[in-house]
C-alpha cells in the first residue's frame, strides 16, 4: 500500500501540450471503441434500421416511385447511406447523456486531461462505428442491385463525404446529449434532427414531388445537398456546385456545434 498511499510530488503543469492532448484523445477513443465492441447488439440495431429502410424502399415502395433517368435503387442508396451515419449519431447523444448521469464526466473533468479530449475521443470512436456500419450497408446495397457508375476516386470521395457529414452530425448529437442530460430524453430528442434531415430531403423521393411550401427547405438543407453531391459522385455528372456547398455546410455546422459542445461539456452538471 505504500505505493498507492504515498504522495507524489506536486506537478504544476501549464496547459496540456498538443502531444499529451492527442494521447488523451486516443485513450478516450479507445475506451469508447471498447464500449462499442462490447455492446454489439447496439451496433446491430443501429445498422438494422437503415437495412430495413433500404429493403422497404427497394422492394416494397420503390416500384411506385419513378425517378427520371435513374434506376430507383441507384437513386435511393445514397440517401440510405446518409441515414446510416445519421442514425449512428443518435447513440452519441444517448451515450453522452449516460456518461453525464453516471458521473463519468465528473471523473474525467476532475482529471488533468485535455478538456477537449473527451468529446474528440468520443466522436472519433463514433466515426469508426460509422465506418463499420457503412461498410455493411455498402455490401447490402450492392447485393440488392446498386452499382457504382463512376471512377473509383469519385466513389471513394462520395463515401468520404458521407462519413464527413456523419462526423459533423456527431457533434450536433454531442451537444444535444449534453444539453438534455437524460438518456431517455436524448433518445427521443435525437429522432427529431433525423426525421427533419432525412425525410424532408432528396433521400427517398425527388424534391420536385414535394408540396411547394416544403420544396425551398428540402432543396437547400444540408442533407439534400450532401445526398445530391454523393449521387453525382456515384453516377457521374456535374458535381462541383453541390460538393462545394456540402463542404461549406459541413464546415459551418462543425464549427458551431464543436464550440457549443465544448462549452456544454465545461459546464456539465449531472
Amino acid at each position: 500500500m505504500t505505493e498507492l498511499t504515498s504522495v507524489a510530488p506536486v506537478a504544476r503543469p501549464g496547459p496540456v501540450s498538443a502531444q499529451l492532448a492527442l494521447r488523451d484523445i486516443q485513450g478516450i477513443a479507445r475506451r469508447n471503441l471498447i464500449r462499442i465492441v462490447r455492446t454489439p447488439q447496439l451496433l446491430f440495431v443501429s445498422i438494422l434500421q437503415p437495412v430495413i429502410i433500404l429493403l422497404l424502399f427497394r422492394y416494397v415502395l420503390g416500384g411506385a416511385i419513378h425517378v427520371p433517368g435513374l434506376d430507383y435503387v441507384d437513386f435511393v442508396v445514397p440517401g440510405i447511406f446518409l441515414e446510416t451515419v445519421l442514425i449512428g449519431g443518435m447513440t452519441t447523444a444517448v451515450a453522452l447523456a449516460q456518461d453525464l448521469q453516471a458521473g463519468m464526466i465528473d471523473r474525467f473533468r476532475s482529471l488533468p486531461m485535455a478538456r477537449s479530449a473527451f468529446l474528440a475521443g468520443r466522436t472519433l470512436a463514433d466515426l469508426a462505428r460509422g465506418i463499420a456500419a457503412l461498410a455493411c450497408l455498402v455490401g447490402l446495397a450492392v447485393l440488392v442491385g446498386f452499382r457504382f457508375h463512376n471512377s473509383a476516386v469519385a466513389c471513394i470521395a462520395a463515401i468520404a463525404l458521407i462519413l464527413a457529414f456523419g462526423y459533423v452530425l456527431t457533434w450536433v448529437y454531442a451537444a444535444l446529449g449534453l444539453a438534455v442530460r437524460d438518456p431517455q430524453t436524448a433518445q427521443m430528442a435525437a429522432i427529431l434532427p433525423m426525421f427533419v434531415l432525412f425525410f424532408a430531403s432528396s433521400a427517398l423521393v425527388p424534391v420536385t414531388t414535394m408540396p411547394g411550401w416544403l420544396q425551398p427547405f428540402a432543396r437547400n438543407q444540408p442533407a439534400t445537398i450532401t445526398i445530391n453531391a454523393v449521387r453525382a459522385l456515384f453516377e457521374g455528372g456535374p458535381v462541383a456546385h453541390d460538393l462545394w456547398l456540402a463542404v461549406v455546410w459541413c464546415t459551418g455546422i462543425l464549427i458551431v456545434f464543436l464550440v457549443l459542445s465544448l462549452r456544454l461539456y465545461r459546464r456539465a452538471t449531472a
Partner: peptide
C-alpha cells in the same frame, strides 16, 4: 488545471465505466 493534477475525486455514484 493545476488543481486537477493534484487531486483525486471518488464520487458518490461510483464513476467507473461499467
Amino acid at each position: 488545471a493545476s488543481i486537477r493534477s493534484m487531486i483525486g475525486l471518488a464520487g458518490q455514484y461510483a464513476s467507473v465505466d461499467e
